[in-house]
Amino acid sequence: MTLLSEFREQLLEAATDRARSPRVSGRSGATRREWRRARTPIAAATSVLVVIAVVAVALLTLGHAGADRSSTPGGQRGRAIGSGHGGGVAATRTQLLSELGVLRRGHAPARPSGYYQHSLSLTGPRDSGTPPVVDRSLVRIVRTGGYTVALLPATDGHTTGLAMTVHWPKGTGLWNAEFEIDDPVSPTAIARRGINDVEYVTGAVNRAVFVVPDGVARVQLSRFQLAHADGRSRVTIAAASGLVHDNVALITLRGVTPAAFDRTSRTLPHKGGIFRQRHCRVVSLLDFVPASAQLTWWSAGGNRIRTTRIRVTLDAYSTQAPPNFLPSCHPAGRHH
C-alpha cells in the first residue's frame, strides 16, 4: 500500500527522466555496468564460498575419522587428531571433545528426523555470510526441563566451534518462536563463558539456556546491570542458578518486566523496543534489554570455578504499558 501515491508517481517520473536524460545516461550506463560488475563478484564470491564449504566439509570429515576413535568408550580425551592440512578444524574439534563430555557420549540419531532435522535446517544461509557447515557426526541432542537443545559443531567461515539451537516447550517463548539459533562459538570462548541464550517464557519470566564445559555442576547469574546507562544501571532481578545436565543448564530469571527497566516513552524507542498501540493505548510492548550479569560456575563440591561478567539480552514483554510509559499520541509523551 502506498501512502503518498501522487508523490510516488512524481518520483518515478523523475527517475525515468534521469535514466533517459543525456546528462545522466553516461552515469546510467556506468551504473548499469557497475551493477553488472557487482553481480560478477557475487557469482565469483559464491563459487569461492562453495569451494570453502566443500573444503570445510572434507576437513570436518577427515577430523571425524580421527575423533571417532577418541569418542569410543575408553578413548583418549583430547587426543590430537588429524595432521597436515585441516589441522585447525581438527584441533578445534579436539578442543570441543575435550571440553564437552556430552560430545564424547553417544551419537545423534543415525537417521536424521524430527527435531534433529529441524536443527540442521536452521543452520542454512544466514542474513549474510557463509552458512555454517555442521559436523553431523558430532551433533548431540540434550533434553532437559522440557527444552531440547541441539549442540552443533560447525564452522561458518569465521569461527569454528559449537552452534546451538533451542526448542522451547510448547506454549512458551515469544509468539512460540520455538527455534533459536546461534553462530558457532569457539572452544576458547566456551571455556571462558560458555554459550548462553536467554528468552522470554511467560509473564515476567525469562529462561537462560547455558552450555558449559565439563566440571561445572551449577551455573549462577547475579548482579544484573543495564548495558547502556540510561537512568538506573542496576536491575532488580534476583540472582538465580541452575544445575548442569549433559553440559546444559537452565536458569529461571524472574521479575523481567518492562517496568523493571524503567523504560519510558522517551527511552524505549531509542533502545530498540517495539510496541503496538491502538487508539493511543499500548496493547503489547516488547523490550529487548541489553544487560550484563555476573556469571559464576560452581563445581559439584560447591567450589567456585570461575566468575566473569557476561552480556545477555533480556526480553521484557507485556500487554500493559509501564506506569511511566505514555503512547506517542499522548500530549505528555510527545518529544523531539
Binding site: D127, E180, I181, K271, F288, P290, R311
Partner: peptide, 23 residues
C-alpha cells in the same frame, strides 16, 4: 511454516544483536 518460524526467530535475534552492538 518452518521457514517462517526460522525467519521470525532470526529476525528477533537480529534485532537483539543490533541492540547489543549499538553504542
Amino acid at each position: 511454516p518452518l521457514v517462517i518460524r526460522q525467519r521470525v526467530s532470526r529476525g528477533l535475534r537480529s534485532l537483539r544483536r543490533s541492540l547489543n552492538e549499538s553504542p
